[in-house]
Write a protein that binds this DNA or RNA. Structure first.
Length: 314
DNA sequence: CGAATTTGACCCCT
DNA sequence: AGGGGTCAAATTCG
Protein backbone atom coordinates (compact mmCIF):
# COMPACT_ATOMS: atom_id res chain seq x y z
CA UNK A 1 0.00 0.00 0.00
CA UNK A 2 2.73 2.37 0.65
CA UNK A 3 3.29 2.88 -2.99
CA UNK A 4 2.89 6.50 -2.29
CA UNK A 5 6.18 7.79 -3.44
CA UNK A 6 6.12 5.43 -6.32
CA UNK A 7 3.45 7.29 -8.15
CA UNK A 8 4.14 10.56 -9.79
CA UNK A 9 0.94 11.86 -8.46
CA UNK A 10 1.87 11.07 -4.95
CA UNK A 11 5.21 12.63 -5.50
CA UNK A 12 3.66 15.80 -6.70
CA UNK A 13 1.35 15.93 -3.78
CA UNK A 14 4.19 15.33 -1.48
CA UNK A 15 6.19 18.15 -2.93
CA UNK A 16 3.30 20.48 -2.90
CA UNK A 17 2.67 19.81 0.68
CA UNK A 18 6.22 20.44 1.53
CA UNK A 19 6.01 23.64 -0.36
CA UNK A 20 3.04 24.63 1.68
CA UNK A 21 4.73 23.81 4.84
CA UNK A 22 7.79 25.79 3.99
CA UNK A 23 5.71 28.69 2.90
CA UNK A 24 3.82 28.58 6.14
CA UNK A 25 7.03 28.52 8.00
CA UNK A 26 8.29 31.42 6.05
CA UNK A 27 5.16 33.28 6.83
CA UNK A 28 5.90 32.84 10.45
CA UNK A 29 9.29 34.36 9.99
CA UNK A 30 7.94 37.28 8.12
CA UNK A 31 5.61 38.35 10.81
CA UNK A 32 6.88 41.88 10.72
CA UNK A 33 6.72 42.29 7.04
CA UNK A 34 3.11 42.62 6.06
CA UNK A 35 3.70 42.62 2.38
CA UNK A 36 5.88 39.59 2.47
CA UNK A 37 3.38 37.91 4.67
CA UNK A 38 0.63 38.53 2.22
CA UNK A 39 2.70 37.23 -0.55
CA UNK A 40 3.33 34.04 1.27
CA UNK A 41 -0.31 33.88 1.95
CA UNK A 42 -0.96 33.94 -1.73
CA UNK A 43 1.57 31.28 -2.31
CA UNK A 44 -0.17 29.11 0.19
CA UNK A 45 -3.41 29.68 -1.55
CA UNK A 46 -2.04 28.81 -4.89
CA UNK A 47 -0.58 25.64 -3.58
CA UNK A 48 -3.74 24.66 -1.87
CA UNK A 49 -5.61 25.07 -5.04
CA UNK A 50 -3.11 23.18 -7.01
CA UNK A 51 -3.29 20.31 -4.65
CA UNK A 52 -6.99 20.32 -4.68
CA UNK A 53 -7.16 20.50 -8.41
CA UNK A 54 -4.75 17.66 -8.85
CA UNK A 55 -6.57 15.63 -6.34
CA UNK A 56 -9.91 16.23 -7.94
CA UNK A 57 -8.62 15.35 -11.33
CA UNK A 58 -7.05 12.20 -10.09
CA UNK A 59 -10.12 11.27 -8.18
CA UNK A 60 -12.26 11.78 -11.21
CA UNK A 61 -10.26 9.30 -13.12
CA UNK A 62 -10.15 6.94 -10.33
CA UNK A 63 -13.83 6.60 -10.23
CA UNK A 64 -14.99 5.78 -6.82
CA UNK A 65 -12.37 4.74 -4.49
CA UNK A 66 -12.79 6.47 -1.28
CA UNK A 67 -15.11 4.62 0.91
CA UNK A 68 -17.76 6.62 2.44
CA UNK A 69 -19.18 6.58 5.80
CA UNK A 70 -21.41 3.72 6.47
CA UNK A 71 -24.76 5.02 7.21
CA UNK A 72 -27.46 2.71 8.13
CA UNK A 73 -30.62 4.40 7.27
CA UNK A 74 -33.30 2.78 9.22
CA UNK A 75 -31.38 1.34 12.01
CA UNK A 76 -33.55 1.55 14.95
CA UNK A 77 -31.18 3.27 17.17
CA UNK A 78 -33.43 4.88 19.63
CA UNK A 79 -32.04 4.89 23.02
CA UNK A 80 -34.08 5.17 26.07
CA UNK A 81 -33.14 7.63 28.68
CA UNK A 82 -33.19 5.05 31.34
CA UNK A 83 -33.88 1.78 29.67
CA UNK A 84 -30.70 1.39 27.73
CA UNK A 85 -32.19 -1.57 26.03
CA UNK A 86 -31.44 -1.82 22.38
CA UNK A 87 -28.00 -1.42 21.07
CA UNK A 88 -27.56 0.09 17.76
CA UNK A 89 -26.20 -2.30 15.30
CA UNK A 90 -22.80 -1.75 13.90
CA UNK A 91 -23.62 1.14 11.73
CA UNK A 92 -21.47 3.73 13.16
CA UNK A 93 -18.24 4.07 11.48
CA UNK A 94 -15.77 6.77 12.00
CA UNK A 95 -14.81 9.13 9.34
CA UNK A 96 -12.33 7.07 7.56
CA UNK A 97 -10.03 8.44 5.04
CA UNK A 98 -11.59 11.69 4.31
CA UNK A 99 -9.28 14.60 4.45
CA UNK A 100 -8.03 15.63 7.79
CA UNK A 101 -6.47 18.92 8.50
CA UNK A 102 -5.50 20.21 11.86
CA UNK A 103 -4.72 23.81 12.51
CA UNK A 104 -4.18 25.81 15.60
CA UNK A 105 -5.98 29.06 15.55
CA UNK A 106 -7.39 31.67 17.79
CA UNK A 107 -10.41 32.53 15.84
CA UNK A 108 -12.55 29.56 15.31
CA UNK A 109 -14.88 31.25 12.95
CA UNK A 110 -14.44 29.86 9.50
CA UNK A 111 -17.54 30.95 7.77
CA UNK A 112 -19.29 27.65 7.83
CA UNK A 113 -22.40 26.70 9.63
CA UNK A 114 -21.60 24.05 12.16
CA UNK A 115 -23.82 22.12 14.42
CA UNK A 116 -22.41 20.78 17.58
CA UNK A 117 -23.25 17.21 18.25
CA UNK A 118 -21.04 16.22 21.07
CA UNK A 119 -18.33 17.06 23.49
CA UNK A 120 -15.87 14.92 25.31
CA UNK A 121 -13.21 15.07 27.88
CA UNK A 122 -9.98 13.91 26.37
CA UNK A 123 -7.50 11.85 28.21
CA UNK A 124 -4.39 13.95 28.26
CA UNK A 125 -5.95 17.26 27.66
CA UNK A 126 -7.14 19.77 30.07
CA UNK A 127 -9.89 20.86 27.82
CA UNK A 128 -12.72 18.93 26.32
CA UNK A 129 -13.05 18.40 22.63
CA UNK A 130 -16.19 19.49 20.87
CA UNK A 131 -17.55 17.79 17.82
CA UNK A 132 -19.29 19.56 15.01
CA UNK A 133 -20.84 18.52 11.80
CA UNK A 134 -22.00 20.68 8.97
CA UNK A 135 -25.44 22.05 9.53
CA UNK A 136 -26.39 20.72 6.14
CA UNK A 137 -25.30 17.22 6.79
CA UNK A 138 -28.72 15.87 6.20
CA UNK A 139 -30.37 18.27 3.87
CA UNK A 140 -27.40 18.38 1.57
CA UNK A 141 -25.41 15.36 2.51
CA UNK A 142 -22.53 17.52 3.44
CA UNK A 143 -20.00 15.36 5.17
CA UNK A 144 -17.82 18.05 6.60
CA UNK A 145 -17.00 17.78 10.23
CA UNK A 146 -14.70 19.44 12.59
CA UNK A 147 -13.40 19.00 16.06
CA UNK A 148 -12.35 21.82 18.24
CA UNK A 149 -10.28 21.72 21.32
CA UNK A 150 -8.71 24.45 23.30
CA UNK A 151 -4.97 24.19 23.46
CA UNK A 152 -3.53 23.05 26.68
CA UNK A 153 -0.88 25.65 26.95
CA UNK A 154 -2.31 28.54 25.09
CA UNK A 155 -5.87 28.79 26.29
CA UNK A 156 -6.59 31.41 23.75
CA UNK A 157 -5.88 29.13 20.91
CA UNK A 158 -7.86 26.26 19.60
CA UNK A 159 -6.82 23.23 17.79
CA UNK A 160 -9.28 22.64 15.05
CA UNK A 161 -9.41 19.51 13.03
CA UNK A 162 -11.39 19.54 9.84
CA UNK A 163 -12.54 16.26 8.53
CA UNK A 164 -13.96 16.02 5.08
CA UNK A 165 -14.85 18.80 2.77
CA UNK A 166 -18.01 20.77 2.52
CA UNK A 167 -20.19 19.73 -0.31
CA UNK A 168 -23.06 21.85 0.72
CA UNK A 169 -23.99 25.11 -0.75
CA UNK A 170 -26.60 27.01 0.97
CA UNK A 171 -27.14 30.65 0.40
CA UNK A 172 -28.78 30.93 3.72
CA UNK A 173 -25.56 29.96 5.27
CA UNK A 174 -23.75 32.86 3.77
CA UNK A 175 -23.07 35.70 6.04
CA UNK A 176 -26.44 37.38 6.10
CA UNK A 177 -25.68 40.96 6.80
CA UNK A 178 -22.17 41.69 5.90
CA UNK A 179 -20.49 40.05 3.02
CA UNK A 180 -19.15 43.22 1.88
CA UNK A 181 -17.56 43.33 -1.45
CA UNK A 182 -15.79 41.03 -3.69
CA UNK A 183 -13.38 39.82 -1.16
CA UNK A 184 -15.98 37.75 0.45
CA UNK A 185 -17.10 36.41 -2.81
CA UNK A 186 -13.69 35.35 -3.71
CA UNK A 187 -13.29 33.78 -0.42
CA UNK A 188 -16.35 31.81 -1.18
CA UNK A 189 -14.78 30.38 -4.23
CA UNK A 190 -11.78 29.23 -2.42
CA UNK A 191 -11.17 25.67 -2.83
CA UNK A 192 -9.92 25.03 0.53
CA UNK A 193 -11.83 26.78 3.10
CA UNK A 194 -9.41 26.35 5.86
CA UNK A 195 -6.59 27.70 3.89
CA UNK A 196 -5.27 30.98 5.06
CA UNK A 197 -8.56 32.59 5.04
CA UNK A 198 -8.25 36.21 4.17
CA UNK A 199 -6.76 37.92 7.00
CA UNK A 200 -9.04 37.03 9.75
CA UNK A 201 -7.43 34.54 11.92
CA UNK A 202 -5.19 33.17 9.37
CA UNK A 203 -3.15 30.37 10.46
CA UNK A 204 -1.14 27.94 8.74
CA UNK A 205 -3.06 25.25 7.15
CA UNK A 206 -2.61 22.42 4.96
CA UNK A 207 -4.86 20.23 3.23
CA UNK A 208 -6.02 17.30 1.54
CA UNK A 209 -9.39 16.58 0.44
CA UNK A 210 -11.63 13.94 -0.71
CA UNK A 211 -14.49 14.95 -2.80
CA UNK A 212 -15.28 18.36 -3.98
CA UNK A 213 -14.80 21.37 -2.08
CA UNK A 214 -17.13 24.15 -2.26
CA UNK A 215 -17.00 26.58 0.44
CA UNK A 216 -19.91 28.24 1.84
CA UNK A 217 -20.32 30.43 4.73
CA UNK A 218 -22.43 30.25 7.67
CA UNK A 219 -22.72 31.74 10.97
CA UNK A 220 -20.95 31.55 14.17
CA UNK A 221 -21.74 28.41 15.89
CA UNK A 222 -18.51 28.08 17.63
CA UNK A 223 -19.63 29.85 20.64
CA UNK A 224 -21.48 26.80 21.50
CA UNK A 225 -18.34 24.92 21.61
CA UNK A 226 -16.75 27.53 23.61
CA UNK A 227 -19.63 27.73 25.87
CA UNK A 228 -19.21 24.13 26.36
CA UNK A 229 -15.56 24.39 26.97
CA UNK A 230 -15.69 27.30 29.21
CA UNK A 231 -17.36 25.89 32.21
CA UNK A 232 -14.90 23.16 32.31
CA UNK A 233 -11.78 25.09 32.05
CA UNK A 234 -11.39 28.74 32.07
CA UNK A 235 -13.58 29.71 34.81
CA UNK A 236 -13.17 33.22 35.89
CA UNK A 237 -10.78 35.90 35.12
CA UNK A 238 -10.06 35.12 31.56
CA UNK A 239 -10.71 38.50 30.23
CA UNK A 240 -9.57 38.12 26.71
CA UNK A 241 -10.95 34.72 26.43
CA UNK A 242 -14.26 35.99 27.43
CA UNK A 243 -14.07 38.31 24.55
CA UNK A 244 -13.18 35.65 22.16
CA UNK A 245 -15.94 33.56 23.44
CA UNK A 246 -18.54 36.17 23.19
CA UNK A 247 -17.39 37.17 19.81
CA UNK A 248 -18.32 33.80 18.61
CA UNK A 249 -21.71 33.86 20.01
CA UNK A 250 -24.06 31.33 18.53
CA UNK A 251 -27.21 32.01 16.70
CA UNK A 252 -25.18 33.67 14.04
CA UNK A 253 -26.44 37.05 14.83
CA UNK A 254 -24.65 38.76 17.54
CA UNK A 255 -23.59 42.28 17.18
CA UNK A 256 -20.56 41.45 19.17
CA UNK A 257 -19.75 38.66 16.88
CA UNK A 258 -20.05 40.80 13.86
CA UNK A 259 -18.00 43.48 15.37
CA UNK A 260 -15.29 41.19 16.42
CA UNK A 261 -15.42 39.58 13.09
CA UNK A 262 -15.02 42.73 11.19
CA UNK A 263 -12.32 43.83 13.43
CA UNK A 264 -10.42 40.68 12.98
CA UNK A 265 -11.16 40.11 9.39
CA UNK A 266 -10.31 43.36 7.90
CA UNK A 267 -8.95 42.14 4.64
CA UNK A 268 -5.77 43.45 3.37
CA UNK A 269 -5.00 46.48 5.33
CA UNK A 270 -4.21 45.37 8.74
CA UNK A 271 -1.37 43.13 8.27
CA UNK A 272 0.53 43.22 11.44
CA UNK A 273 -1.55 41.07 13.63
CA UNK A 274 -2.65 38.94 10.84
CA UNK A 275 0.57 37.19 10.76
CA UNK A 276 0.87 37.17 14.43
CA UNK A 277 -2.14 35.00 14.51
CA UNK A 278 -0.22 32.46 12.67
CA UNK A 279 1.57 30.24 14.93
CA UNK A 280 1.41 26.59 14.61
CA UNK A 281 1.31 24.52 11.64
CA UNK A 282 0.13 21.04 11.85
CA UNK A 283 -0.51 18.61 9.25
CA UNK A 284 -2.40 15.52 9.79
CA UNK A 285 -3.92 14.61 6.58
CA UNK A 286 -4.13 11.50 4.73
CA UNK A 287 -3.52 12.74 1.47
CA UNK A 288 -5.56 11.24 -1.06
CA UNK A 289 -7.69 8.38 -1.73
CA UNK A 290 -5.41 6.57 -3.95
CA UNK A 291 -2.15 6.64 -2.33
CA UNK A 292 -3.69 6.52 0.82
CA UNK A 293 -4.26 4.04 3.10
CA UNK A 294 -6.65 3.98 5.71
CA UNK A 295 -5.07 6.17 8.05
CA UNK A 296 -3.65 9.50 8.19
CA UNK A 297 -0.36 10.38 6.95
CA UNK A 298 1.30 12.37 9.61
CA UNK A 299 4.01 14.67 8.79
CA UNK A 300 4.90 14.33 12.35
CA UNK A 301 6.41 11.09 11.47
CA UNK A 302 8.51 12.73 8.93
CA UNK A 303 9.61 15.26 11.36
CA UNK A 304 8.27 17.93 9.21
CA UNK A 305 6.40 20.01 11.55
CA UNK A 306 6.45 21.92 14.66
CA UNK A 307 8.65 24.64 13.62
CA UNK A 308 7.73 26.96 16.24
CA UNK A 309 6.45 24.92 18.89
CA UNK A 310 7.54 21.83 20.53
CA UNK A 311 4.31 20.07 20.34
CA UNK A 312 4.81 16.66 21.51
CA UNK A 313 1.55 15.31 22.47
CA UNK A 314 0.84 14.06 19.06
C1' DC B 1 -42.71 26.45 18.52
C1' DG B 2 -38.83 25.07 15.90
C1' DA B 3 -33.94 24.92 15.91
C1' DA B 4 -29.63 24.46 18.33
C1' DT B 5 -27.08 22.84 22.31
C1' DT B 6 -26.23 19.92 26.23
C1' DT B 7 -25.14 15.76 28.13
C1' DG B 8 -24.90 11.03 29.24
C1' DA B 9 -25.27 6.67 27.07
C1' DC B 10 -23.86 3.77 23.45
C1' DC B 11 -20.57 1.72 20.39
C1' DC B 12 -16.38 1.36 17.48
C1' DC B 13 -11.59 0.89 17.48
C1' DT B 14 -7.06 0.39 19.21
C1' DA C 1 -10.75 -2.59 28.58
C1' DG C 2 -10.84 2.00 27.88
C1' DG C 3 -10.57 6.07 25.02
C1' DG C 4 -12.71 8.57 21.72
C1' DG C 5 -16.55 9.56 18.46
C1' DT C 6 -21.54 9.69 17.76
C1' DC C 7 -26.37 9.47 18.92
C1' DA C 8 -30.47 11.27 20.63
C1' DA C 9 -33.51 12.69 24.62
C1' DA C 10 -33.83 16.61 27.31
C1' DT C 11 -33.17 21.29 27.70
C1' DT C 12 -32.31 25.91 26.27
C1' DC C 13 -32.48 29.55 23.00
C1' DG C 14 -34.41 32.75 19.54
Amino acid sequence: MAAAAAQPYAQVMEDMRKGQEFAARLQGLLADSPDAGRLVDQILHAMSRTIETARAAAAAEEGSEGQSEVTCAGTGGKRKAAGGGDKRTACRRRAQNSSTVTVTIKDIEDGHAWRKYGQKEIQNSKHPKAYFRCTHKYDQQCAAQRQVQRCDDDPEAFRVTYIGAHTCRDPAAVAPLVLHDADELHAGSRLISFAPNNASAATASTTTTTGNTSSQHGDHKDAALLAGLRPLKLEAGAGEQEEVLSSLTPAGSSAAAEAARNAAATPSLDQGDVTSGLQHFYYGGSFDDMAAFDDTFDLDDLGVLGFDQGQDEF
